[in-house]
């Protein structure tokens, strides 16, 4: 019974993130369009785009190799798996013990590795631009992210997400400076990792400044659909991560009643909507940075993470 219930929850979570991810992207686009005084496409537009792309035949360059063709599937699998491991509406996922937070970050790293490789596969200069910039940004964002993990692990005594969340929900957590600093760091990292403004412009398609879009420039048809879906999933993953660690209210505990699961789901939707609207507002107020200002931006995240970790060492109550 218990096994059936927990597998069911895991299945619901995996399908839920997949269903919600394009909607989240649509929501952010809609908010941005409204703020710019445009009507904008409807929120369901990304679903239509994906469905259309899935039905189109992919066009490959003559020298595209097998890596180019399997990379979208791999990238999607890595990202979806990572998203499935982050609690959304309830704790105690059966997949939880398979990977702690460090492994989740590494799974995203694997997805990025294959994305960068597939960008280099056709041998066009745009692919090279995208890949080389992406790895530079990742080389700053990943250490910053791991410092955030260090802080959380030192506060909660664990790198397991469900344990961290349970700790944050417990009354012993209180107000902590180190948590606040790592929250700020995580926000900066989330912007960089998801190629959002001010690091990269997700709306650009023909510019020398693009990063993520330059990497997926040669993909088309179902391959492009998988990559777009993976990008939406990754945004959702970071929102879920922030929601689970720093705003864990409303999460259902394992073995709870159906109504509390439902409440957890509603809370989750609320959190996603808030985060999506906030991101939309944030992005409309900012201009894109020069590429070589990005190290300053992510360096700030790194310093915040380091400061949070060190504070944690100085006093166990900070």
């Amino acid at each position: 019974m218990d096994l059936i219930q927990s597998s069911l929850i895991q299945a619901v979570q995996m399908i839920l993130v997949l269903v919600l991810a394009p909607g989240l992207t649509g929501l952010v686009r809609k908010v941005k369009a409204c703020l710019l005084g445009r009507q904008g496409p409807p929120i369901v537009q990304p679903y239509r785009d994906l469905l259309r792309l899935f039905r189109k035949s992919p066009v490959l360059a003559p020298n595209a190799s097998w890596l180019f063709r399997i990379a979208p599937y791999l990238i999607f699998a890595f990202t979806w798996l990572a998203t499935a491991l982050v609690p959304t509406f309830c704790l105690g996922l059966p997949f939880g013990p398979w990977a702690d937070l460090i492994a989740i970050i590494a799974l995203i790293g694997s997805a990025r590795f294959f994305l960068a490789l597939s960008a280099l596969d056709v041998g066009t200069s745009f692919g090279g631009i995208g890949a080389s910039r992406e790895v530079m940004i990742a080389s700053l964002a990943e250490p910053a992210m791991l410092l955030v993990v260090f802080t959380l692990a030192l506060v909660a005594g664990s790198t397991e997400l469900s344990t961290i969340t349970a700790f944050v929900l417990s009354p012993s957590v209180g107000l902590r400076v180190s948590m606040a600093l790592s929250f700020a760091a995580l926000l900066l990292i989330a912007l960089a990792e998801n190629s959002r403004l001010p690091i990269d412009n997700p709306a650009t398609h023909l510019e020398l400044t693009m990063v993520h879009e330059a990497m997926i420039l040669e993909h088309s048809g179902r391959h492009l659909a998988l990559l777009e879906l993976a990008a939406s999933l990754k945004l959702l993953l970071y929102f879920s991560l922030i929601g689970t660690i720093f705003l864990p209210w409303g999460l259902a505990t394992p073995g709870a009643s159906f109504s509390s699961y439902l409440a957890g789901g509603l809370f989750y939707l609320l959190k996603l909507a808030t985060a999506g609207v906030t991101l939309g507002i944030f992005e409309t107020t900012l201009a894109k940075m020069r590429l070589f200002r990005v190290p300053d931006f992510l360096g700030a995240a790194l310093m915040l993470g380091l400061l949070a970790t060190l504070l944690r060492f100085v006093s166990s109550s900070l």
């Binding site: 899935f54 066009v59 490959l60 360059a61 003559p62 056709v122 066009t124 420039l217």
Partner: peptide, 23 residues
């Protein structure tokens, strides 16, 4: 990976075309 491959075929599979790189 395998499930997605199957799902893609179920949605509607079109064969791959080769053409010059877009760039």
């Amino acid at each position: 990976g395998l499930a997605v491959t199957g799902l893609v075929r179920w949605i509607g599979f079109r064969p791959i075309r080769r053409s010059a790189a877009w760039d």
